[in-house]
Design a protein around this nucleic acid. Structure first.
Lengths: 284, 284
DNA sequence: AGTTGTATCTCAATATTTGAGACATTGTTT
DNA sequence: AAACAATGTCTCAAATATTGAGATACAACT
């Protein structure tokens, strides 16, 4: 089986014909395969056969790993039915959230914001080129948004994402915008994004106010208002947003909401040691 | 290194001197070690040295595994500071919750119950000899309970746990009760549990009503009312409970709450295909 | 019943992991 | 500031732990 272990056999050729579905790190094949198996189950490939196929690994081997994963509680097995994600993952996921002080600190503030506005409130951070949702308070209006904690979304087309972009050098904006514009559009619910010149102009305006708008760019019928959260070194480390259905979000309300959201974001920032001053990078 | 792989070398001797901190399954050392490393980080052992010690594994090896885990997003690494649980675990944890139809189905009902009572509502299932919390709606009274999704608690001393016990053969009750009575008592907040005779008598009464009480047995100052959820085959598959601080939970209110909680539990049961009838196991 | 797919186990071959150690880098102490 | 301690990173030969083909036992579906 061709896997690359030999550091000599790797001149310039970049293409790795070994594992199509999986990159190979080094000296931990078994571990990586096991983790990949978990992700298969998470993605809906719940039978041994399918997993074996996706991992390019004999059933025998996959079966052995799945057994261990079940024994440790990472997976759950319903014989002759399939595998499901196990309770240990729930446990670890929750603990992972706890380990981020950000979530705990921000909670009261986003709860207050949710109560005050009655809308869905999100907390998110940058992860790679995407937003990663760390917390969500559902709307009290009964309308459920399809977002959820642990979800990833594009930066350029979401309220939270744009707020996070305010903390990046504007030179990165273009690439992020284009990534969304080019994207294959998973669910087909995303409208054609704004053309770059207009988008840039808007972002420049947001940068001045330090809060952002999202007008159905990510999902038709949903508008939101967002603002960045900064830490002690004035770096943007997170963002919050208030989202609601269009009928609840007329232009005037969004304008009112801007300062409110920013104030909530600032409150969280202060908890992180941030001190309001007009000097540094992001704020006039 | 002595690990057991040979099925012949295993007459009657049960003791396995191999890995003190870790049981060994079969043919997946690397995977199990990697998972164990994750759990180390979850438990607060966040430095390479400590993890290596707890796993009884050379630093070199641990380091290699940690690298892979970081690459896959299961851990987060702050150089020269330590390791933290990574975003992938949050993602998987949330997906694990979603994969349980129970959580989705129960949500509306426990939300309604929370709104109606104003108290903290929990949803839990049996996992081993413990309750495993699957969902929680926080109280609107501002009092936060220290419970959380993903947590485990003893069966015999919690409201949810006792409700779950109603679905077990009463012959198991004694052992579960004693386990709590004997327990080293982690945080020291748990009062001495009821003596067995009294406990049994109470449980017998609960069984008749099909809802249970918990009078500060798990945590001083917290009382709760619980009821079991059944599936199509009339098996107890989950339980819900309403919990609050003693001042909000006088005896009379608990008596009123009983039927309310049971009704909510029944509503969830119906979603699972359960049909109310007086014939089978648990219900008069 | 017959058929298909999964669950489970064995065992020889060897690819994969292992782990000691050297070195580079960072943070902490004196 | 310099010495020290701890962590990050890499190499390589040894051998253990993993692999995977295959055979069997069950379960489910038609």
């Amino acid at each position: 089986m061709p896997t690359r272990t030999d550091p000599m056999t790797q001149p310039v050729d970049a293409i790795d014909p070994a594992t199509p579905e999986r990159r190979q790190a080094a000296g931990t094949q078994t571990l990586l395969r096991g983790l990949a198996a978990i992700e298969c189950v998470a993605t809906g490939t719940t039978e041994v056969k399918g997993i074996a196929a996706r991992l390019n690994t004999p059933r025998s081997t996959v079966h052995r790993m799945l057994n261990s994963l079940v024994a440790e509680g990472y997976l759950h097995h319903v014989p002759y039915k399939g595998y499901l994600l196990g309770p240990k993952l729930i446990e670890l996921g929750m603990r992972a959230l706890e380990q981020r002080p950000l979530v705990a600190l921000a909670r009261p503030h986003i709860e207050a914001l949710a109560q005050r506005t009655g809308d869905t409130v999100h907390l998110g951070v940058v992860d790679g080129d995407e937003v990663f949702y760390l917390d969500k308070i559902p709307s009290t209006r009964g309308l459920e948004m399809r977002s959820r904690v642990g979800l990833r979304m594009p930066l350029a087309s979401t309220g939270i994402g744009k707020a996070l972009m305010l903390g990046m050098p504007p030179s990165r904006w273009r690439a992020l915008h284009d990534a969304v514009a080019t994207a294959p559009d998973t669910v087909g619910g995303r409208p054609g994004p704004l053309p770059w010149p207009k988008y840039e102009k808007l972002m420049a305006g947001f940068l001045r106010r330090d809060w952002v708008l999202d007008l159905e760019e990510n999902e038709i019928g949903v508008r939101c208002v967002g603002a960045p959260v900064r830490d002690i070194s004035n770096q943007v480390v997170a963002a919050i947003s208030v989202a609601s259905a269009v009928p609840y979000m007329p232009d005037e309300r969004m304008a009112e909401l801007g300062p409110v959201v920013r104030a909530a974001a600032d409150a969280i920032s202060k908890e992180l040691g941030w001190k309001q001053d007009g000097s540094a990078t992001g704020r006039p």
